[in-house]
Design a protein around this nucleic acid. Structure first.
Lengths: 227, 227
DNA sequence: CCTGATGTTCTGCGCAACAGAACGGCGTTC
DNA sequence: GAACGCCGTTCTGTTGCGCAGAACATCAGG
């Protein structure tokens, strides 16, 4: 990375591109696969992995394959808890999922995407499949639309804060979402319910008040109604 | 890092030492604080942060302070789910915590330490405080002792698999733990109950069968009884 | 207004890190 | 058993990357 270009450290970016090679559901990757996915030379990868391993960001398995390491989990938890939502959100999401019968998710905005920060799956066997840590576009789905629509703060009183979308991200799914505000009226995230379209679409209007109430309760707990 | 020393990439290790600067409960750190904690020059830190920011491992706040970034959360979740325990453990821990009244934790061994991978807090207000992502020594506490004692695989039938410790890690706490085995009889982790010593110590013997049964049920679900 | 602390920018120089070849091991096929 | 292809490991000459650290700008507090 020439000084005339964007600042940074090329070796660090090579190491991070390695970490970015893992995908959902992959426990371990071989050296050859890492080379194929990153375009880096195997000797370069081995040197980078040595440092990542020393800091416990990757670990080498007995069969020679490489897995992500525990320090990423630790830092990921520090990130999540640094948002100061971990004490409040999991029980609130669990309650909402149990009472509504659908999956409850809390989305936060990260740049041009939304990140699934907390999740309580529906008690039902048929439900949408979504995992904490997943990053999705803002433009699709109720959660993303709420993060866009309410970025500037709380709407005027009397405005319906709940957004409903049918089949935007997946044709068979539906979702509702409402904004949650934190201190100073800043948007903290979007509280969403989601599930199969056939089951959720007929119930969407009926679920709006409960979702709006749950989001408002979270807003109050976060001090978002004081701004 | 001279070639004669351990292999690796010094710039990468500097960047990782930056990420390691954050501690529990710290949402953001200033440049000066990062310099104080790592001993790196501020110009060096800024270059490293530029790369970390580009890969979304840190983010700069409007006030100029630096926070850990969402990609760490994503990779942390990939690490956790790569262990293939996420579908099974959270509900099992919740059940165990609700039935026993104490906090339930799943520990995995990472090198010479144990990592809190999943956690269900006790429903009671007075409980020990422990968070996913925390790393603790193996030599202290029931969870750690189990990871040491059963590293070689399942014990002979008839052996009591539950370890009880009183006040080892914290004088006011007590814990019980039992091993959980995965495919091929390999130790997957330790299932633990923990809480205030005054409350848990009198109940420890009575809780052993339930904990052993829960651990055995997890072992069966993971195929650990087939090896 | 002054001071101290913090954050930002710049650059010469040294060596860190890379590219990529060569090699060994292993599994598969004939 | 030999040959082949793929994977992982080791080595090294060269160069441009990345650092140290000084200088500077900004800001908050007294």
């Amino acid at each position: 990375m020439a000084a005339a270009e964007e600042p940074g450290v090329a070796a660090v970016e090579r190491a991070l591109s390695l970490l970015a090679a893992w995908r959902e559901g992959e426990a371990a990757l071989s050296l050859a696969e890492l080379a194929a996915r990153t375009g880096l030379y195997k000797s370069t990868i081995l040197r980078l992995l040595a440092s990542l391993e020393r800091f416990r960001c990757v670990q080498r398995r007995p069969d020679g394959q490489w897995a992500l390491g525990p320090m990423l989990f630790r830092w990921g938890m520090l990130y999540q808890r640094g948002l100061r939502l971990d004490a409040i959100l999991p029980p609130a999401l669990r309650r909402l999922a149990d009472e509504s019968g659908e999956s409850a998710t809390f989305w936060v905005r990260e740049g041009g995407q939304r990140l699934c920060l907390f999740r309580a799956d529906s008690p039902r066997a048929v439900r949408d499949h979504l995992l904490p840590g997943e990053l999705l576009p803002l433009e699709q789905g109720a959660g993303g639309r709420v993060l866009l629509a309410f970025a500037a703060g709380p709407p005027p009183p009397g405005t319906d804060p709940v957004v409903v979308t049918l089949g935007e991200r997946d044709p068979d799914m539906a979702a509702l979402a409402a904004p949650v505000f934190g201190g100073g009226g800043a948007l903290a995230g979007a509280l969403a319910l989601s599930g199969p379209r056939a089951r959720l679409a007929p119930l969407a209007e009926a679920l709006k008040p409960a979702l709006a109430a749950a989001a408002a309760a979270l807003t109050r707990r976060l001090g978002g109604d004081l701004g």
